[in-house]
Design a protein around this nucleic acid. Structure first.
Ligand code: SF4
Ligand code: SF4
Lengths: 133, 133
DNA sequence: TCGATATCGGACTGAAGGAGTCTGATATAT
DNA sequence: ATATATCAGACTCCTTCAGTCCGATATCGA
């Protein structure tokens, strides 16, 4: 139904939070989650994915937590969404379980691909720094 | 995960088919479904929704079927998607079951609303005639 | 009039994905 | 040592999706 996952939503909020306090040390999942009413366990899970994709750096142990891996200007909304939800693709022409049976005779595949491209561009052009402003 | 429903996909294909044969009489759900490997029952259901939203006209009885309610130039991809899936909204800030609990302190609501607006505009600007070309 | 062919409306099912929880393991500062 | 973190994955509950099915209504043609 063309909806962003809640995880991506949370991820954007978290990265946004870290951007707002960029250079002020690290923040734990608890720190971030508390301010926005996000379940801590879920927030942790989201942050982990962002680390795995190289958007954040993490520090174990007490006084540990997360920081941005690079300045907010160089992190896009697409980066965050892609790290959490995988590739942005409004159609399911080909998924992990084979391709859509309509593919050969589909008449809307190409036009939708173009629409998808525009969405990707829009998300890619939107930096975290810009969101924060 | 930001994906269009299969129903919308089918709807676009159906409307596209009717556009391609605009002025050549009406086509039944069976007619349309057959050409694209779409389950007939599901195709019928999708077409019914399009009729209810005024995009198509229907004719009961034998030799009945569906025709476009207006020329392809004046039907947009958004019209079709909206008729089938409801309003295009990438966030769930407010749904039928109340609003998102993060709404008051959400920092990404506004930026995402703007992204949504761009998507809506893109879909709205894409007419069926254009898809067909 | 009868029967075939349509749409129409809604209920229904099984499968998939989403949201969130929980547990155990590892790393680090005090 | 202990408290505090991240980390990794399995797990449950719930919603949505894709597709089916049935009964009702409308229309055409023989
Ligand atoms: S091939 Fe056509 S029908 Fe199948 S997913 Fe892609 S766009 Fe949709
Ligand atoms: S309010 Fe914020 S968190 Fe809640 S749905 Fe809207 S954008 Fe997502």
């Amino acid at each position: 139904m063309l909806r962003l996952s809640k995880k991506s939503d949370y991820g954007l909020m978290a990265v946004n939070h870290l951007a707002r306090h960029y250079g002020e040390g690290s923040f734990s999942a608890r720190d971030i989650a508390a301010g926005y009413g996000i379940p801590v366990g879920l927030m942790a899970k989201v942050l982990q994915r962002l680390v795995r994709c190289g958007l954040l750096r993490s520090q174990h142990g007490s006084n540990g937590g997360y920081t941005l891996a690079r300045p907010p200007e160089f992190i896009s909304a697409l980066d965050v969404i892609h790290a959490i939800d995988g590739p942005v693709m409004i159609t399911a022409c080909q998924t992990v379980r084979g391709e859509c049976v309509q593919t050969p005779m589909c008449t809307v595949k190409e036009p939708l691909r173009k629409v998808n491209e525009r969405i990707v561009n829009a998300l890619s052009a939107l930096s975290i720094a810009e969101i924060n402003a």
